[in-house]
Design a binder for these strands. Structure first.
Lengths: 148, 148
DNA sequence: AAAAATTCCGACAAATTTTGTCGGGATTTG
DNA sequence: CAAATCCCGACAAAATTTGTCGGAATTTTT
C-alpha cells in the first residue's frame, strides 16, 4: 500500500539523472536512462512521455532528440507527479466518485477519509523535487529547444 | 499505491463500530461487524485477531466472547495499525533490507527515500484513532475481562 | 530520398499483490 | 456435551502493477 510504484521510482531516477547533468542540459533519451539504471526501456519511456505531455519535460522527436527538464520542474511536487502517472490520489476508492460508496449505507469511510485524504495530499504537495532530490539550487536551464 | 488496503479499511470500520457503542462497551464478535458492514467475515476476523495479538484489542474466546477495545486504543496511530496489519511501512523495498538495493550500484533511491520515508512515517504516527474517528473524548472503558 | 534515431501509442502478457475462501483446531459458556 | 467463538494456515481468485510487443509519426543524418 505504501510502496512507490515503478512508474514513480523510474521517474524519480530519470529526474535525478537529468538534474545531475544540469549546468550542461542536453537532450537525454529514454534509452540512455534505461541503460544507466538498467531498468526496462519501454516503461521509463512511457513515464517520460506522460511527464512530457503533462508539461514537466520538454521532448523532441527524432534522431538526437530526447527529453530535457522544463523550467520550473524543480518546483513540481510528488503529488503532481503521482497524479500525472497514476491518476488522482485517494485513500479510498469511493472518493474517486466523490464519496459515492454505494456499498453499504452504514459505511462511514468516505466521511472519515475525506479530511485525512486532504492532509495526505497536502503532505505530498509540500514535497517538491528540489527537496526530494536534495538539490542546493537549480543553476540554469538553457532555453534550447532544438537538438542540434 | 495510496489506496488503503481492505485490511485497514475493515479495521477502521471495526474500530468505528466499537467506538460507537462506547460508554456501554461489550464483547463484539467478528460476525457482528462483518454483518453490520457486509464485509467478508474471515477477513475482518483475521484483522481483529492480529489487532488483538498486537495488544490493541482484548479478545475472549468462547460463546459470548468477542473483541473489545483495550485501554489506550484511541491513541494508536495509523502507523501502528499499518505495521500490525501490513508490516513495516517503507516507500521502497530496499529500505526493508536497510537500503541494500543490490540492484544497480547507481540506484540512488534508497538514499533519496530514507528521509522521505521518515517523514511519511511521522505523518501517520501523528494520526491517531481518536482524531481519525473524530471522537470528542473517550468516555470510559470498563475493565471487564470476562463476558458474563 | 532513404535510413536511422527517436518519441509516441495502444494492446496485451506476465508477475505480483491483495482479497477472499476453506478446513480445521482450541477454548469457553450453558 | 453442544454451541459459539476465537485462532491459524494453506490455498484460490481477483485485481493491480509491471513488462513486452508491434507499429506509427517525426526529425536528423547520409
Amino acid at each position: 500500500m505504501f510502496h512507490l510504484t515503478k512508474k514513480l521510482e523510474y521517474s524519480l531516477l530519470a529526474f535525478s539523472y537529468m538534474a545531475q547533468l544540469l549546468p550542461e542540459s542536453r537532450w537525454v533519451t529514454a534509452k540512455e536512462i534505461s541503460d544507466h539504471y538498467q531498468i526496462p526501456y519501454e516503461v521509463v519511456a512511457r513515464c517520460l512521455q506522460h511527464l512530457a505531455r503533462a508539461g514537466v519535460l520538454h521532448s523532441w522527436i527524432g534522431a538526437q532528440g530526447g527529453y530535457r527538464l522544463k523550467a520550473g520542474w524543480e518546483k513540481k511536487s510528488l503529488l503532481e507527479l503521482y497524479e500525472i502517472l497514476e491518476g488522482p490520489m485517494n485513500l479510498v476508492r469511493c472518493l474517486d466518485h466523490d464519496g459515492d460508496c454505494s456499498h453499504v449505507a452504514r459505511c462511514t469511510l468516505p466521511v472519515l477519509m475525506r479530511p485525512l485524504n486532504q492532509k495526505l495530499k497536502k503532505f505530498f504537495q509540500d514535497l517538491v523535487l528540489r527537496d526530494v532530490l536534495n538539490l542546493k539550487e537549480v543553476i540554469n536551464e538553457s532555453k534550447v529547444t532544438t537538438p542540434s
